[in-house]
Amino acid sequence: MRSADYIPGRDGDFVEWSANLLAVCRARTADWQLDAEKITELRTLHERFRTLYELCRTPAHSSLDAQEKKAAETELKAAERHLAQLQKRRKFFTLCAIFLKFV
């Protein structure tokens, strides 16, 4: 069953999706009003999750590694959802401003 969430549920798909989102953020820093600090935060969270995801794919990983991966995933998804909410709000306020110019 497909989730209503825009973030993929499978870890491998999420790693790819997150990398793509990071690339889009880097390309649209001005449009999305993102500063270097926010991009660095997202990159750091993405790299931490990606590293732990790769580690957990090996037989040598521990249950602590799996717990850390889950925590990293939760933190990264929260940051990405927050970014999406900010973009939705900016889009809404931009549309309102455009509308008000014509009223």
Rank of each mutant, 00 (worst) to 15 (best):
M1C: 11
S3Q: 04
D5C: 11
D5W: 12
D5Q: 03
I7C: 03
G9H: 05
R10L: 07
R10I: 01
R10M: 04
R10H: 12
G12L: 05
D13Q: 09
D13C: 02
V15A: 13
V15P: 04
E16G: 01
E16T: 01
L21Q: 15
V24N: 01
C25M: 05
C25W: 03
R28I: 04
T29A: 08
A30Q: 13
W32H: 04
W32V: 01
D35L: 02
D35E: 06
K38M: 14
T40G: 13
T40R: 10
L45I: 06
L45T: 08
H46T: 07
R48P: 13
F49Y: 15
F49S: 04
L52V: 04
E54M: 01
E54Y: 00
L55N: 13
R57K: 14
R57A: 14
R57Y: 00
T58V: 06
P59S: 00
A60V: 14
D65T: 02
A66C: 06
Q67I: 03
E68C: 12
K70H: 08
K70S: 15
A71L: 07
A72Y: 08
A72W: 04
A72E: 06
T74C: 00
T74Y: 01
L76C: 07
A78E: 10
A79F: 14
E80L: 10
R81S: 08
A84F: 09
A84H: 06
A84T: 05
A84C: 05
Q85E: 11
Q85A: 09
R89P: 04
K91Y: 11
K91M: 04
F93V: 06
T94D: 14
L95H: 06
L95I: 04
C96E: 13
A97Y: 07
A97H: 06
A97I: 09
I98H: 07
K101M: 11
F102L: 08
V103F: 14
V103Y: 15
